[in-house]
Design a protein around this nucleic acid. Structure first.
Lengths: 236, 236, 236, 236
DNA sequence: CATGAATGAGTGTTCATTCAT
DNA sequence: GATGAATGAACACTCATTCAT
């Protein structure tokens, strides 16, 4: 039951502002819910708190979402990008080396997903999957599977062009995914509450990851690796 | 209702049995609690359920742990291995190449932590850190920090012996940790409830990870990589 | 489930009704709580019972009072008359003899406090003081102390006008208070549950108390004591 | 089910000490229970606490008293002095004036009951009467009634000898009792927890009470009143 | 007899959900 | 549509009571 994003030709002009607000409601609620579910988990998040953060009353929440669980499902659905196909297309038309493609993919993933609030969904799924198996299944189909496809295409491109060495593709895919998933988890859990001497920098982590990943992936012996931004070439 | 006046030999014996039971209780409860907290999260786990799984009544749980939160803390504390120093020592005396050391470390980590129930603690912490900041802090100090040290030592060994190329050590450490943390998360979340066409094999994932990691780490140009068991050499 | 679009005139009216209900709630709850606390004590009174007697559900009680203890405190606070100053003023302008003043004070106390539900508070305090020392302290300041002042003024008036003999004022005050306190206790404890052959009549007890207080027991020639209503002159 | 105070001809001499302790148990429990019931009320007193104060385990308490309620009843029964008849006899043989008798009675009541722990029973009854009507009834019969008799005899003696003026006997009796009951209540409630500028002295309160009871408040020429101890003659 | 581990009915409190306004 | 007062099922926690030792 994805909520309509637009309600074209809405009423008269005088109601416009009001309508816009009204139509924004579900979105505001979903946003508030995402924040809170990510922060505290499903069970520990109170419906009233979600409503309050969205600036509406408790009753209104249930006007838009039949139950807390429905809200949860909607949050997941809403934040699952169906943008995989366009993304796929983008990568398909990439003209550089496979190493560059990989680097580009990971970096743009960070900008488009990792660093945005959408990354919270992953934390949410990891934390709640066992309480919502159907949603987890849905997530698998809509996110994990396409994500794996995306990475697979990149790897296969590299292998088929002789840029990457052959490898256990299935597990290799997870090797590429794992650090990204870790990064999302980290940001939304320990990284968000227990500061230490050392603060992990996502960008540098990704650069480092690219560097390690490619130098391991690339066919021997020439290791002209990934195009790191100059200021990050220096290792510690 | 005449009571037996003497119970000579049985006395100490039966006393022992009860004592043993009493001493076993906290452990049984902690184990049950770990399972359930990992599975459902702190908030969604009912105290009575923990008790039931441990084979005792609700009241008994509170006999040993003052509150649900106390139980949670005890679960974390109990499952946080203070075995880092001995592990450190073990790795310090390792005589093989640094590549072999890295491979050994990751594989033995899997056997000692990753595949055991203790790995659930990581999922627990990732899910609940923001609800229990003090515990997260504790976890940081007792697990993350020592873990980072351990990995740092391995990397530094490789670098100083010229086996590994120099690298941004701090983030490199997380690159090594990340896939392991991912693995634990995965096992205890999506991996435990949403089966797909492809089942991730932890062992092969780790092998693949080692393979990728080392070929990226090792100094050029000789790349005789990690010692993979022969049957896993074949890629897909 | 079509909703009525307009409810023109009813709106403010019904809103008012609901509002009135909402505003009445705390009072109804406090009244119910007073009854039950007085009857059964704090610990033995169940929150749900209070709610039921006030005609609401358990949850509603906690909507108005954060906890049972809060409810208790509110009950005490609510029933502690701050009317001492006006009462003082009233007695200050009394024009009769001090004996008449004393008689008037005790009798009007009975009508305004003793015979009302407010007297239950005293029983409550006596029974629960040691479980709620802060509240007891509050009661001391707000009730006992002003009460003592009130009586002191009456006694001092009598003494200074030569109508009363000088006396240990501090303890004398308690001698006046004691029977009134006893009366409240009695009404709300034994007097309310263990009927005997003889039922204590508060009014006659007070009259008798006035009589004794003013004239004492001992037989003596002239005793133009307090103005007893004629029908109560006859002793048993 | 009053517990036996003595178990004559108990076992062999070697067990004597142990036996004595064993037989002291019920008494120690009753004493502890009295303290706690008086202090916190029946409902708020935990059985384990009673046991702990008596130096035994929780189980032992239930060995001697079938339930908490049984314990309560036993506490009341145990502390209700059946000494009224001997007291009556003592007062019957009193040879002084009736004023002196009254003063003597009140003062010796204070020493024998008021100032002892037994006074706690009154506080207990006042607080719990409505929760234990049968016990309250029992208390009425065993304490209130005989007490009233006692006072009645004193008053009647005075009246019949022309020392006291005739009065509404039934209520007069309560006028004598009330301050004593107040005193017990006070000591065990507010007086025990909310200290003020002025501390009520029971002895002086009783003296003052005697003085007022016998002579009244009003100033008059000759007042040969009760025999106050010299140092207390001075009024404030 | 004495113990104290175990129990589970009972109670305070929370919070998703409803519905009159 | 929106509100928020009301509900009551659900849950953490307590404590009188039991009973194996």
């Amino acid at each position: 039951m994805p909520l309509p994003k637009f309600k074209l030709c809405a009423a008269s002009e005088s109601h416009a502002k009001r309508e816009r607000r009204k139509e924004a409601r579900p979105g505001e609620l979903l946003e508030a819910a995402l924040d809170l579910f990510v922060e505290k988990g499903f069970a520990a998040t109170r419906a009233e708190e979600v409503a309050a953060r969205a600036g509406v009353s408790k009753g209104t929440l249930f006007l838009y979402f039949g139950s807390k669980e429905e809200l949860f499902k909607a949050v997941v659905r809403e934040n699952i990008s169906g943008r995989f196909t366009e993304w796929q297309a983008e990568l398909d038309t990439f003209t550089g080396s496979s190493a560059e493609l990989m680097a580009y993919a990971l970096r743009s993933w960070w900008e488009r997903v990792g660093m945005t609030k959408a990354s919270g969904i992953t934390k949410l799924m990891m934390s709640e999957a066992r309480n919502f198996p159907e949603i987890a299944e849905f997530y698998q189909q809509e996110v994990i599977l396409p994500g794996r496809q995306l990475i697979r295409r990149i790897l296969e491109r590299g292998v088929s062009r002789g840029e990457f060495r052959p490898l256990d593709m299935d597990h290799g895919i997870y090797c590429v995914m794992a650090p990204m998933i870790f990064l999302m988890m980290w940001r939304h859990s320990i990284g968000a509450c227990a500061p230490t001497d050392f603060e992990l920098s996502p960008e540098r982590f990704i650069d480092q990851q690219i560097s390690l990943l490619l130098d391991g992936l690339q066919a021997r012996p020439a290791s002209t690796s990934a195009p790191l931004p100059p200021e990050q070439q220096r290792d510690k």
